[in-house]
Design a protein around this nucleic acid. Structure first.
Lengths: 142, 142
DNA sequence: ATTACTGCAAATACTTTGCAATTGT
DNA sequence: ACAATTGCAAAGTATTTGCAGTAAT
């Protein structure tokens, strides 16, 4: 993806392009693929736009989500954002907190889309457990 | 399920059976199948145990989750608990907030369990959109 | 010119923590 | 008797809101 992709999507959804939004786009674009919280974005953007506030970051991330360029899911008590639009799961390690994408059979989506009367707008698959690194650390070789 | 099921599971995990826990069990057992927040449990249990606090409810729900009798997932900014142990999705309506279980092909779980090096401890599938009732309300017949 | 956006401060919502008193085993 | 649990109050996160000033279109 490119910064233009995010800018155009915002424009098409009638959102204005502000310096703060450009900085968020810069952050998000540089973070692809990856997972980040509003706080992560805030801390990074504040370096270039020192007066920006978390409230504004929340506003901007909501706009980008409405524009369809980012997704979000909830885990560990916070909202995580991501740019991966392929249908996938998010594995979150209970030990180190790291989040990684996991491929998932698309059949699941088809099942969901065939639900009578329900319109599916968002799907969030969160898997928690222990990641490879942490599993190894806990089970030292004999 | 029965109240004994929840009591026994707590005992097996070395948790003590207190009057407060019995009331939570009563609530949860009467709520099967269903979805509830700590607040929901609190408001109900408070009627019989007026001195109970939310902190205690959180403690009890954590114990029950550790004992394996309830699951939890995050959606709409809060933690939801449920008793359904079949692998399934939770559809949450963006309009009315209602949550309903949706059947899901178990293959997904198998895929996840075969991930190399990762130990899967919990899976949460949250689908958001508009439920049947709300869809109809928004699209009046001509 | 108009409307949307920002920054700020305060409010709200959810959850956890520390600790003394109490209770289940 | 002992460790676990409760109740309470306070603190800790995460997120939202209202509003006046500012900036994008």
């Amino acid at each position: 993806m490119s910064k233009e992709y995010y800018v155009n999507a915002l424009r098409e959804s009638k959102f204005k392009i502000t310096p703060q939004r450009l900085q968020v786009i810069k952050y998000v674009n540089g973070k692809t693929p990856g997972h980040f919280t509003a706080e992560d974005v805030y801390l990074s953007v504040k370096k270039i736009e020192p007066t920006v506030t978390l409230a504004t970051i929340y506003n901007i991330l909501k706009a980008m989500k409405d524009a369809g360029t980012i997704n979000s899911f909830e885990a560990n008590g916070t909202t995580w954002f991501e740019t991966n639009h392929e249908f996938h799961g998010n594995f979150i390690c209970r030990n180190c907190g790291e989040i990684v994408d996991v491929p998932v059979n698309r059949n699941l989506l088809n099942d969901l889309n065939s639900m009578e009367g329900f319109s599916v707008e968002d799907v969030s698959l969160v898997i928690s457990g222990t990641c490879e690194k942490c599993s190894k650390a806990k089970t030292p070789q004999l």
